[in-house]
């Protein structure tokens, strides 16, 4: 893990806990849309989303 992604990792974990299991999907969906908007590169955002859909079997 690179140094600058760690604060994001920590913050997401804290907000997921604060949101609770019921609101976690909504929270993460908002995060994904907002990060995608900030990225301002639709093909790259789509590729990242597709990549994230892999290995979900846990």
């Amino acid at each position: 893990m690179t140094a600058d992604i760690e604060p994001l990792y920590d913050l997401l974990a804290r907000h997921i806990d604060a949101a609770g299991p019921q609101m976690t999907p909504l929270f993460l969906a908002k995060v994904a849309l907002a990060l995608g908007h900030a990225l301002n590169d639709t093909p790259r955002a789509l590729a990242i989303v597709t990549a994230c859909a892999k290995n979900l079997e846990g």
Partner: peptide, 17 residues
């Protein structure tokens, strides 16, 4: 439904949503 709610929730503070 989840993505719609996420967009609406974001839209409370962000015009782009």
């Amino acid at each position: 439904a989840l993505m719609r709610d996420a967009a609406l929730s974001l839209a409370l503070r962000h015009d782009w949503a």
